[in-house]
């Protein structure tokens, strides 16, 4: 097995075992989405209009908040030292960890989207559009959030500080994700334009994220 696939397999295994937090993200997503109607009222017409925005906000918070400990636990038990010393470039190892996190915590969010779409009175097209944009956009969230997770190790602070650092970085993804879903549901814009930009954002973050995270981790070696 190659070093990277070994790392991905290990991280997914840990996330799914007892004590792992992969499914808590989905539960958080569900809870946030269920809270929204209590704030805006049970008006189905209004909810279905707000639906894509609510789902995107919920998915954004769920995928960023679960990132908190992406590097922290490896730092605490000394694994990060060995990963840094190994032949595998730290950038690639970071990318592998982020990918594992997306597979274990990001994909379940997308799988849960249709159920939540039902609660928000979204029809098939709208649910499909939101799920598709989430599929294209959540990698961007994970790979940008990873930078915050790396900073959390360097600064010895996690949680809210990290969220404050990373949430502004995720604004473009939110804009184009919701715009693309709205375009598919009501128009008048074409779905293609914002969706392409969303994909581009994901691809860019796929490159920037690992480098920034690795640089931050190397700099913070202690």
């Amino acid at each position: 097995m190659t070093p990277l696939s070994a790392l991905i397999r290990r991280d997914i295994k840990i996330a799914l075992r007892v004590g792992g937090g992969a499914l808590i993200g989905v539960l958080f997503f569900l809870t946030v989405v269920v809270l929204m109607p209590f704030a805006v009222g049970p008006d189905l017409a209004l909810l279905s209009r707000l639906g894509p925005a609510i789902l995107w906000l919920g998915a954004l918070l769920a995928s960023l908040l679960t990132l908190d400990r992406l590097f922290m636990s490896d730092h605490e038990d000394g694994s990060l030292d060995l990963i840094t010393m190994s032949r595998t470039p730290l950038e690639l190892a970071c990318a592998a960890k982020a990918l594992a996190h997306w597979l274990a915590a990001g994909l379940p969010l997308i799988v849960a989207t249709p159920v939540l779409g039902l609660l928000l009175n979204l029809d098939m097209v709208a649910t499909g559009a939101v799920a598709l944009t989430l599929l294209a956009g959540t990698p961007a969230l994970t790979f940008t959030g990873m930078i915050g997770a790396a900073l959390a190790v360097t600064l010895h602070r996690g949680g809210l500080l990290m969220a404050v650092l990373v949430l502004p970085l995720s604004i473009p993804v939110l804009i184009f994700g919701v715009a693309a879903s709205q375009a598919a549901i009501v128009g008048p814009m074409t779905f293609g334009a914002p969706f392409s930009i969303l994909c581009a954002l994901s691809l860019v973050s796929l490159v920037i994220g690992p480098f920034a995270a690795a640089a931050s981790l190397k700099h913070g070696l202690d």
């Binding site: 295994k13 075992r17 004590g19 038990d77």
Partner: peptide, 10 residues
């Protein structure tokens, strides 16, 4: 090092 680089869940 002082830390064992082990994952308790594995």
């Amino acid at each position: 090092g002082h830390r064992d680089a082990l994952k308790p869940a594995l």
